[in-house]
Each structure stands twice: as C-alpha cells, then as structure tokens.
C-alpha cells in the first residue's frame, strides 16, 4: 500500500503550484484555473486522510468541496465576462481604477 505521506506530499506540491500561479499569472482566467487546482489538491489531501483515519468524513467533505468549486467557477466566469464587456481585457494588471 502506498503510504499516506506520498499523497500528502503530492497534494502539497499541487497546492503550491496553484498558489504560485495565482500570485504570478496576470490572466484572470488562468488565475481561476489555478484556484481550481488548489481546491483539487485539497480534495486529494482529504481523501488521503480519510484513508488514514478509516472514516468517511473526508470523502463526504470532498463532495462538498466539489460542489462549492463548481459554484465558484460559475460565479467567477460570470464576473469575468461582465468585466470583459466593459474593459475588453482579462489582464488583472488593468484592473486598477482604484488603487489595490
């Protein structure tokens, strides 16, 4: 059997890639994809822990995270489209009417 720590290290690596992507990429679409990647790495963590503790809490949590991630993408893309209608750009460096 593969030890739990392998899954945890893998998911930590994926989470870090996602987080670095959010901070370094300038295209809002890619940032949304990076956030999705972070959420999926959390799912992997939860499943690994569920296996380790031998209970179902973690697996149920994964379904909740999936549902929330889907809702989040729906809202995020809607906001992105509304923004694109007005400003014709998806680059977040141009989102600067107000100082950050």
């Amino acid at each position: 059997m593969v030890p739990t720590s392998y899954y945890l290290i893998l998911s930590a690596i994926i989470f870090t890639i996602g987080a670095v992507g959010v901070l370094s990429r300038r295209n809002a679409l890619i940032i949304i994809m990076c956030v999705e990647m972070m959420l999926n790495s959390v799912n992997l963590t939860l499943i690994a822990f569920a296996m380790q503790w031998n209970n179902l809490n973690g697996q149920v949590f994964v379904f909740m995270v999936m549902a929330v991630a889907a809702a989040e993408v729906a809202v995020g893309l809607a906001i992105l489209i509304a923004h694109f209608h007005l400003s014709k750009t998806t680059n977040i460096d141009d989102v600067n009417l107000m100082k950050w």
């Binding site: 809002a28 949304i32 809202v75 906001i79 509304a82 400003s87 989102v95 107000m98």
Partner: peptide, 10 residues
Amino acid sequence: SNEAAMKYFL
C-alpha cells in the same frame, strides 16, 4: 463595481 467584484472574487 465590476472591478470590486473581480478583486473580491479572485
């Protein structure tokens, strides 16, 4: 308003 939503969401 769009910009606020965008920043808040991301």
